[in-house]
Design a protein around this nucleic acid. Structure first.
Lengths: 217, 217
DNA sequence: ATTATCAGGAACATGGGTGTTGCAATTATC
DNA sequence: GATAATTGCAACACCCATGTTCCTGATAAT
């Protein structure tokens, strides 16, 4: 029913959005959450969800596709194939972090994707690999580094930056309470992106002499 | 029933081990797997599992504790508080990778831990943080790096190294088929550990001049 | 060999989530 | 205002996993 061709009334489409947002919120804290819980969070009867989404699985699938579409947009907006690799990757990192914080659940790895989501993911991955290759040719990334490993590390860093605790607050153990998304400011996201790129390119080793990096104070 | 004080017969203890191993195997590929599926994989009747473990949750809890105990051993075996930070972290990485590959599911983040597992985890985290602090004092890790971020990156790298595709094989997309654990050799694990430490300390930036690292050919 | 323990198997009770249907009340759309 | 769509609500059937019980035959321990 989700992708039936007929035109929906305005309030119906509003319902769909509300449901997906609530589902994202609830499922990101409890991936096994019930349709009932999702409905309650959305302020909607459970039957309404079933009216708009054929099944629980369908709901999640549609959310996943929507999320990956936004990711693809975020990547393309960074002009990864024309801009210089460094600035493209930084910009892509910023954009993707923003999207990821809004699709915490939908973009979580729950086994391999399928259908359109898989196609979009493959496309994004390809662009990511291209950027890495260009980074190597340009000298920003060591040529002897395994591109696959670089990509995996980059993606892992993205996930860490998007889903972990924030720079400011540090609980006793750090990640015990990821409860709320504290409405990331642009400054926050910029700092996170800087962290990711810095970690990726410089690592945590001692600062380089001023040959590579102009300054650092 | 699981932790009843009475002595178990030899075959009973064998059953318990078999069940936990099968559960690890099955659950690592499908976290929602049924007791029936676990039983089948273990070559055991479903009722036998319920005889040994009070509930599904109890089974998973016990597996988690067992896994974290091994992790704690692995960390301690690297003498993290006495050996030089660099070699301690490398050795700990090797040991932990070995354990992680055998407890793929039990060591997967499924929300915050509780009970003994939580205590062990906190202990391990504390040792990890100590090593990082020592690394900073010794100069292996930049002093201006946020220790919390360093730890999170390190743990993320460990997960990537342990659960991802291996150096040799690279599928079309890379991580589509993590099906089997191809019986990691010592050489494999050493390479993975080197990757993790290299990535952590050096990053993917251009190679440093020979001030820091003696050679690299 | 005797005894206590263990595993297999079938049967049952239970709970809970999913998905469906029908109807009445509300609301958008024209 | 007329029409069609949308929603809430209650009720229902269904499936499936969980956990329990009881009994029989096998097996370790002494």
């Amino acid at each position: 029913m989700g992708t039936t061709g007929r035109k929906l009334r305005a309030d119906a489409e509003r319902s769909i959005r509300t449901i997906m947002e609530a589902a994202e919120r609830v499922l990101s804290e409890n991936p096994g959450a019930t349709m009932e819980q999702i409905a309650e969070a959305a302020g909607v009867a459970r039957t309404t969800i079933h009216r708009r989404f054929a099944s629980r699985e369908a709901l999640i699938d549609i959310m996943t596709v929507a999320a990956w579409r936004e990711i693809a947009e975020a990547v393309d907006a960074a002009r990864p194939s024309t801009a210089p690799p460094q600035v493209a990757m930084y910009q892509a990192t910023v954009n993707v972090l923003r999207v990821k914080s809004g699709w915490r659940f939908a973009l979580t790895n729950r086994g391999p994707l399928s259908g359109e989501a898989a196609r979009i993911e493959a496309d994004v991955i390809a662009k990511c690999d291209l950027a890495i290759r260009r980074g190597q040719q340009e000298g920003a990334i060591r040529p002897d580094a395994d591109p696959l490993w670089v990509r995996r590390v980059y993606l892992a860093l993205l996930t860490e930056a998007a889903h972990g605790p924030h720079p400011g607050h540090a609980g006793p153990c750090g990640e015990a309470a990821p409860a709320e998304t504290p409405a990331e400011t642009d400054a926050d996201i910029d700092e996170l992106a800087t962290r990711v790129m810095d970690t990726l390119i410089r690592g945590f080793g001692p600062a380089r002499p001023e040959a590579d990096r102009p300054r650092e104070d």
